[in-house]
Write a protein that binds this DNA or RNA. Structure first.
Lengths: 337, 337
DNA sequence: GGACTGATTTGCATCGTTGTAGAATCAGCG
DNA sequence: CGCTGATTCTACAACGATGCAAATCAGTCC
């Protein structure tokens, strides 16, 4: 069995409460006592039982992070950033995968597993505005990555509409007029797909380019294979297009692959722009022009916001919305002109 | 405050222990009582405090998973698989990143954070045989992904040597003779780099192809950029080569990118083979021939082995070694002939 | 020397749960 | 109607830590 406070106390010849005081840096401990206790701790290899500490103190120093799946590089990289930031604050992170499924997201919000954590950072995909009530939870909760409205919790998100509009305008500025879109998803109400589509349409409207629904291809999970499938579908439709806006990099890369197989040159025949600025976007052939939605900032800010909420005492502040700045990263798949 | 057993008990008009009995499916509870209690539970939205339960029972139903970083797709996908498998067993997973750093790996093994978990699955990169003692820990521990020898804990691993040998022989069989290698790393003693290099050399030896150190390029972290950098270095050396074996897919993809920039055609001038069978290997241009080391099996088996160890009572079984089967996935970057 | 003061140390209750053991209840039976 | 043995429920003591308040200690001052 692992050593406890009492074992250490016995060895050091003090009360177990004194050992606790030493561990918690209680100021009034005589140096000699402290040293004696520390020696005993070292000798027994004592480590505090964090479960017991949590039970007593109410703090677990653990947060939960729920993403659709780690299979998606965007979420994997995001999770990595959140975990790294948490580590800096001495926090542990439990990672949950929801599959982007509404029911699993809702189930997670009600799960007793969260009683092991101080709060949750949730990247919702399946939930819609009608689920706002479910977000009224008795623990700190931060939504990460979705722009929403009257939701009763903090959210840290990106400028989906503006960034998508900027991406589209970037393509328009380089002379493209038939811009296909991959990743539309009518199932969701206010998620990224809808918002990015809105940005796309705003850009078209601002430049008097007609919106053509036959250029819009649906994709739900935003995997690489979904991008490939969507591009096949687009090619099958046999409508002309000179650019593609993938709602994430992963799909854009899958689509680019299919485009090239079909003999279209990128960017000469078709310019391709993605969204996310994944690591690998810089290394594809051609490298992928994309939107950096400010991921690092998102990860850090989500954690900071959650920690602030956890530390909060007294009456609760109203929910906050934090918006990251985006930038367009120009690479080969869509040169500026 | 969240409801406790006592609150439920008061509402239901029974002792709090009876509520506990209901929750734990203790058989001798009258149906009427059970129903009364269940109604009270529902009314109060009672959820058990898992910390208290863990303190009392000694089980946390949480396991820790430590990987170098989620930034590396291989580990992200592996982590996703482990988490999904754990979810099926009702377990929560804490994810830690070690950066592949020996000190951080060792620190983790000594961390009190693990007292919140029932056991650890560790993907070590930095540790060497000299750290075997550190693996003698008082909790269930499974090493994932490294082939090691007399280490005092279970390990679930891949056939690094055989698979690397098979990959090399695949290239040899297709007529290549000057096969470069990316990812050698002399710093590690018995990790994947060394083992894959051994497989490579065995294959060369078996086919009377001389080993040429100038074809071997070092890379430590196995990121995409490391692969790109290694390929630049190789090109700078100005030695002839007709194939490249990347010790992981990520580097192979980074290297392939640089190769193509440099005007070498893949596979005509240079065949490329990777290792891991990442999702994206199927979608690069050209698609990447690679070795599937049996990842899904590795993830599931690592978890199963850990769970078996956790469930173990009485004297401990000797450490087990589980070996996954590999397969070579033929794609465009290195056709069979 | 004894009261007073502030610095150290300690004891006890408590967090919310489960295990053990025993008490209360009940049906069946002589 | 009391006895018996099974069923059902309850009381109490942990698990290992922390917070509070009280106890002890070492000096200081009169």
């Amino acid at each position: 069995m692992a050593a406890t406070l009492r074992d250490v106390a016995k060895l050091a010849g003090v009360s177990f409460k004194t050992v606790s005081n030493v561990i918690n840096d209680y100021p009034h401990v005589r140096p000699a006592t402290r040293e004696k206790v520390e020696r005993a701790i070292a000798e027994l290899g004592y480590k505090p039982n964090l479960n017991a500490r949590s039970l007593r103190s109410g703090r677990t120093d653990t947060v939960a992070l729920a993403v659709p799946e780690l299979n998606l590089s965007y979420f994997a990289e995001l999770a990595g950033m959140v975990i790294a930031a948490a580590e800096e604050s001495g926090l542990t992170v439990v990672v949950e995968q929801t599959g982007g499924d509404r029911d699993r997201e809702l189930a997670l919000l009600r799960s007793p597993r969260l009683s092991m954590t101080d709060g949750l950072i949730l990247s919702p995909l399946g939930m819609g505005q009608e689920d706002a009530d479910a977000l009224n939870v008795p623990f700190p909760l931060v939504l990460l990555g979705e722009r929403t409205f009257d939701w009763p919790c903090d959210h840290v998100t990106m400028r989906n509409v503006e960034a998508a509009r900027a991406a589209t305008e970037y393509l328009l500025a380089s002379g493209r007029r038939r811009i296909a879109v991959i990743g539309e998803y009518e199932g969701e109400v206010m998620g990224s797909a809808r918002l990015r589509l809105r940005g796309y349409r705003e850009a078209l409207a601002a430049h008097d380019v007609p919106y053509d629904a036959s250029l819009v291809v649906r994709a739900t999970l935003w995997h690489r294979a979904d991008g490939a499938r969507a591009m096949h579908e687009l090619l099958d439709r046999d409508v002309p297009f000179d650019a593609v806006f993938g709602f994430n990099d992963t799909m854009a890369l899958g689509a680019m692959r299919v485009l090239q197989e079909a003999g279209r040159r990128v960017p000469e025949d078709v310019a391709v722009i993605g969204f996310d600025d994944l690591d690998e976007a810089a290394y594809s052939i051609p490298s992928l022009t994309t939107v950096d939605p400010g991921r690092e900032w998102l990860a850090r800010t989500a954690l900071e916001t959650l920690l602030a909420r956890i530390a909060e005492v007294g009456p609760k502040e109203p929910p906050r919305t934090e918006l990251a700045d985006y930038t367009i990263v120009e690479r080969e798949s869509a040169p500026r002109n």
